[in-house]
Write a protein that binds this DNA or RNA. Structure first.
Length: 436
RNA sequence: GGAGGGGUGGCAGAGCGGUUGAAUGCACUGGUCUUGAAAACCAGCGAAGGUGAAAGUCUUCCGAGAGUUCGAAUCUCUCCCCCUCCGCCA
């Protein structure tokens, strides 16, 4: 959520920034709504002050020895007209508030100044390429064909058990999948200083709203209705439960000793569930786009002045995984048109997939600045002002496990259909040098 | 699933219809004292918002929502969450 005060103070600046994202903000409508809001607020407060004073007066009269009924009678007439006015103003105010909130929730984050302008992914800015795509001396297969051998990667079983976009992995592939998780967790915990957390994979609406999945993107997630009518959601990413750790809290060493001091760095392995509504027909082959996949997620909660630096570092942590696995990748800065709703700035890491002869997204690292924190009500006590101020939140995949598995299978395939094991992964596979 | 207890400021914890936005303690900030620190003592210290040049002033907030009342942190109802005991269970 954007700062309402910013809209009041400089609506034209906000409109200009929204235009970078291809969104036309109706300045005139906002100004009208805002003027209306202000007028109603002032009137309501004045009426409430009058009502409070009248009630207090009755209390004083009674204390002064007047009979209760007598005291009430004295204020009755004024009381009645006040109540009527209050009711009417309240109703109007609620209506305006609703419209204002709706508008506010519909506005995405303001892109950072160095985010390239553009309409779609074709305007994304490539920042670097790492590694050389391998030239195979045979026809490189994609992961579906590779995994087909011995039924190690079985999409038909997945759809029998559940439906399309689900998979069953067996033996070496299942083990490779698990090894990747452990490898990434160990790297981030031991080398990059993240704290390991385990969290719920079902969350409530407050958590989904806090990180921005609701209300706008409800159709992207799976929801579960419970008997009592409360609604839970299967997490679309660990970002949701992990970032919500700091919802409604003030982070400071003395106040919340359990949480610790900023920066908070969490790493969390979790399954992710996505409905993928609207992507029918896209990536239907293989496990690039599944309803259920695993991810090792990096989340940082930092001081506002430190978030750009933290964003670079976090992205570097994700890159390190690819480098250690010796997977060729490129790093792009998403343009304004491709930037996620809540993000101020995002780097995507795209891994080379020989089966597709293309770079495909394997990690997305974003700085949300205070956009998520405002909704989450996540603050810290700034020692210089001694006041609670909003924190900055960041997250990134480090990495998506399913897609990493695909990348390893495809990049490390041999002519005979076996898969060589990247050196840094061997300790996690009992020292084995090849699979399948 | 059954039976109880409870949700109050950064934390702990009083208040249970009328200057209570809330005692007290801890923490925090400033000061006195001290060579310095600690201790002690004094003072300040919740959040969000409106208005104002500022001092100030007004509104809202005691888990959430609805109700009773002239007036609610305090009474009633619904929901959410936490704790204890019993049952069941990986």
């Amino acid at each position: 959520m954007l700062d309402e005060k910013l809209l009041r103070r400089d609506i034209h600046h906000v409109a200009e920034q929204m235009r970078r994202r291809g969104i036309e903000l109706d300045v005139v409508a906002f100004n009208e709504l805002e003027a209306h809001r202000k007028d109603l607020d002032i009137r309501l407060q004045a009426l409430q002050a009058e009502r409070n004073a009248a009630a207090k007066k009755i209390g004083e009269l009674i204390k002064g020895g007047m009979a209760v009924e007598e005291a009430k009678k004295q204020q009755a007439e004024q009381q009645k007209s006040l109540e009527q006015q209050l009711e009417s103003v309240k109703k109007q105010q609620a209506d305006v508030r609703l419209q204002l909130d709706e508008l506010l929730l519909s506005l995405p984050n303001i892109p950072a100044s160095d985010v390239p302008d553009g309409d779609d992914e074709s305007a994304n800015l490539e920042l670097l390429r790492w590694g050389q795509p391998k030239n195979f001396e045979f026809a490189a297969k994609d992961h579906v064909d590779l995994g087909e051998r011995n039924g190690l990667l079985d999409f038909e079983l997945g759809s029998k058990i559940t439906g399309s976009r689900f998979v069953v992995m067996r033996r070496d592939v299942a083990r490779l999948h698990r090894a990747l998780i452990q490898f990434m967790l160990d790297l981030h915990i031991n080398e990059h200083g993240y704290e390991e957390v385990y969290v719920p994979f079902m969350v409530n609406t407050a958590s989904m709203t806090g990180t921005g999945q609701l209300p706008k993107f409800a159709e992207d997630s799976f929801s579960l209705a419970t008997d009592s009518g409360t609604e839970f959601y299967l997490i679309p990413t660990a970002e949701v439960p992990v970032t919500n750790i700091v919802r409604d809290t003030i982070i400071a060493s003395q106040d919340n000793p359990d949480l610790g001091e900023l920066p908070l760095r969490f790493v969390c392995h979790s399954p992710c569930f996505r409905s993928e509504a609207g992507s029918y027909g896209r990536d239907t082959r293989g496990m690039i786009r599944q309803h259920q996949f695993e991810k090792v997620e990096l989340v940082q909660i930092v001081r506002p002045d430190e978030s750009p630096q933290a964003h670079e570092e976090l992205t570097g942590h994700a890159e390190k995984v690819l480098q250690l696995l010796e997977l060729p990748y490129r790093k792009v800065s998403l343009c304004t048109g491709d930037l996620g709703f809540s993000a101020q700035k995002t780097y995507d890491l795209e891994v080379w997939l020989p089966g597709q002869q293309a770079y495909r997204e394997i990690s997305s690292c974003s700085n949300f600045a205070d956009y998520q924190a405002r909704r989450l009500h996540a603050r810290w006590r700034n020692p210089t002002s001694n006041k609670p101020e909003l924190v900055h939140t960041l997250n990134g995949s480090g990495l998506a496990i399913g897609r990493t598995l695909v990348a390893v299978l495809e990049n490390y395939q041999n002519a005979d259909g076996t898969i060589s094991v990247p050196e840094s992964l061997r300790p996690y596979l009992g020292g084995r040098e090849s699979l399948l």
